[in-house]
Structure formats: structure tokens, C-alpha cells
């Protein structure tokens, strides 16, 4: 497989970076005022990728279950922060971060370990060359799903307050009263992966599959991997969205089946 790779030199990268400078130049001339951000983002990307490259290189050399687990945990915690950053309205206190992170941890771990111990079976099963990239792909998508699901839950419950309380006041259970909102939140968390599966191959060639092909893999091998990954992502997203949205809904009611909007973080409009 490695025979097919065309290795890049630093000179090649410098040449490609001229495109970024060209963009920055355009931004300056057209007064988009994006040139600063653009250059900083490009530099960040380079630095972050170099660091990741070094970390992965070290991890692959050591193949330690503890170090691999530690890196996996760090990835989950960063993803949890990203979920928090994507909320227009969140649960008061640490609940959004806690729910998002634990749901993601549970879903991504179950699915990743399942794939590593059954379909892929590298030796050892926790080999970081497989564990880390697969976890990363699952995590990225599960994170998006959970962020959307939790955000929809919080904003919709805030918006539908009068209707939900009308149902509760008429003696309906919180399950009946919250049902529509919970379904809407779950749907919004799952739609991206459904759309991604529907568009894959026609509109977009997934990055992982493209990467394998560039690295010299047989196209048929690459698509098999891609299909596996998409199933894993869908499974992880489903589990993660389910547990995060249900957890959030539980948090917004109590033992007397009230609507506890006081447990949502306050916003300017109340």
C-alpha cells in the first residue's frame, strides 16, 4: 500500500501555502478584513497538525493502552467543550457539558470498542493506529449530533413553554407534555448523519475514503472501510443523541413533573 504514496516535501507545502497568501491579498484589496484571521487560522492549523503528527508518531511507537486511553479521553473532553460552544441556550451549571461529554464518551467508546474487537481486530485491539482515527471520526459526528440535539431541546422547550405548561396543568404526564419537543430535538441531532449517508458518493467523496485512495488503496477496499465507518458513525450518533436529549429532558422536569425552566441558563430575553 505504502508504495503508492507520493510523499510531499516541505517545498510542496510552501508552494501550496501561496494560495493562502493569495487569499489574504484578495481580502486586503477588497477590504474584507479577513486577512488577519485567515493567516492566524492557517498558522494554527499547521501548528496543530504538526503537534498531532508528533503525538500520533509517538503513540504508534509505544502502543500503550494507557496512553491511547489518555489521548482518547482528551479528545472527548475537547469535543465536550465544542458542544458547549455551540449552544444558543444551555442548561444552568455544568449540566450541558456533563451530559454532552458523558453521552459522547459512552456512545463513542461503545461503538469504537465494538468495531475494534469485531470488524477490524487489529493486534492488539487497542492499537492507536486504528483506535485513534476511528474514535476521532465517530467523535466528530457524534459531537455535532449531540450539540444540535441539546440546542434544539433547550431552545424549543423555552419557546414552547406555554404549550407544555398547558398540557401539564391539564394533568398530562411530562412524557406527553415533553414528547413533541424530545422528538424534535432527536430528529435535529440525527438529520445530519442521515443526510450525509444519502449524499455520500454522489455529492461528496468522504475524506477518509479519499485519503485511502490517495494512499494507494484499492477503491473497493476504500469503500468498504467507508461503509463500515458510516455505520459506526450512525450508531454512535444515535446512541449519543438519545442519551443526551433524554438526559436533558429529565433535567428540565422533576419528581412532581413540572417544567423547570429555572434550570436553563438565563438569556437576555429571559
Amino acid at each position: 500500500m505504502a508504495d503508492g504514496i507520493i510523499a510531499l516535501s516541505y517545498g510542496d507545502l510552501v508552494l501550496a501555502s501561496l494560495l493562502i497568501l493569495l487569499n489574504a491579498g484578495l481580502s486586503f484589496i477588497l477590504r474584507l478584513r479577513l486577512e488577519g484571521q485567515l493567516l492566524i487560522a492557517a498558522l494554527r492549523m499547521v501548528a496543530q497538525l504538526f503537534l498531532v503528527g508528533l503525538v500520533l508518531k509517538a503513540l504508534f511507537a509505544i502502543v500503550s493502552p494507557y496512553l491511547t486511553g489518555l489521548v482518547a479521553l482528551a479528545m472527548v473532553l475537547f469535543a465536550g467543550r465544542e458542544i458547549l460552544a455551540r449552544q444558543e441556550r444551555r442548561l444552568a451549571g455544568w449540566w450541558t457539558y456533563g451530559l454532552g461529554t458523558t453521552s459522547m464518551l459512552m456512545a463513542a467508546m461503545i461503538v469504537t470498542v465494538l468495531a475494534l474487537t469485531t470488524q477490524l481486530q487489529p493486534d492488539p485491539w487497542y492499537h492507536p493506529r486504528y483506535a485513534i482515527p476511528i474514535l476521532g471520526m465517530i467523535l466528530g459526528n457524534t459531537m455535532t449530533g449531540i450539540a444540535l440535539g441539546l440546542n434544539t431541546l433547550a431552545t424549543t422547550i423555552g419557546r414552547e413553554r406555554v404549550a407544555i405548561e398547558a398540557r401539564l396543568a391539564l394533568g398530562q404526564t411530562w412524557r406527553e407534555a415533553f414528547g413533541g419537543v424530545i422528538r424534535e430535538a432527536m430528529r435535529s441531532g440525527l438529520i445530519p448523519i442521515v443526510n450525509a449517508m444519502a449524499a455520500t458518493g454522489l455529492v461528496s467523496l468522504p475524506g477518509m475514503m479519499t485519503g485511502q485512495i490517495l494512499a494507494g488503496a484499492e477503491p473497493m477496499h476504500a469503500i468498504e472501510y467507508q461503509i463500515l465507518i458510516m455505520f459506526l458513525i450512525a450508531g454512535g450518533t444515535g446512541l449519543g443523541v438519545l442519551s443526551a436529549v433524554l438526559g436533558g429532558a429529565y433535567r428540565l422536569t422533576d419528581s412532581r413533573q413540572r417544567l423547570r425552566l429555572d434550570r436553563l441558563h438565563r438569556t437576555e430575553e429571559g
Binding site: 414552547e160 406555554v162 396543568a169 394533568g171
Partner: peptide, 20 residues
């Protein structure tokens, strides 16, 4: 009483009506 049962016996009608 479970809360829903209580609210069917002691029913609150808010000033702003809600529709779902």
C-alpha cells in the same frame, strides 16, 4: 397523588392559553 392526577383534580387555567 401523582402530580398529573392532582392537576386533574385541582386544575389551573393560565391567563395565556397554550396550544400544542
Amino acid at each position: 397523588f401523582p402530580a398529573p392526577k392532582w392537576r386533574r383534580m385541582v386544575t389551573y387555567l393560565p391567563a395565556e392559553s397554550g396550544w400544542w
